[in-house]
């Protein structure tokens, strides 16, 4: 299952809820959700913990737009829009944590 987060982890609880409930699968950070992939932030520990059970991705264009291109947490895989589509196609279902 693919879990998609599009809200900043500092403003909404969607990342926390997702990580509490999700049982494995893949996590894709998009839009303001990519702030969770920033090195050194308070969300870093959560993402690192999540990587124990899930594969974590972030949408490259959203990362670059927010000036985070050079500080993505190691182990987070950047994907482009085509990669986004691939993730949706590869997974049997998708949950967008709006």
């Amino acid at each position: 299952m693919l879990h998609i987060i599009n809200k900043s982890p500092f403003e909404r609880s969607s990342l926390d809820s997702c990580l509490r409930i999700a049982q494995g699968g893949a996590l894709l950070l998009i839009e303001d959700g990519v702030y969770a992939a920033g090195k050194g932030s308070a969300a870093e520990a959560k993402i690192k913990q999540a990587m124990g059970g899930m594969k974590v991705y972030a949408l490259g264009p959203d990362v670059a737009a927010r000036g985070l291109a050079d500080r993505v947490i190691d182990g987070v895989t950047l994907v482009d829009y085509a990669g986004f589509v691939d993730l949706v196609a590869e997974n049997t279902n998708v949950q967008s944590w709006l």
């Binding site: 500092f10 303001d32 702030y35 490259g60 670059a64 737009a65 000036g67 291109a69």
Partner: peptide, 15 residues
């Protein structure tokens, strides 16, 4: 999150 408005290196070409 307002501090992110001032983050260096923003490149929005892709979005």
């Amino acid at each position: 999150d307002g501090v992110y408005e001032l983050k260096k290196g923003q490149d929005t070409k892709g979005i």
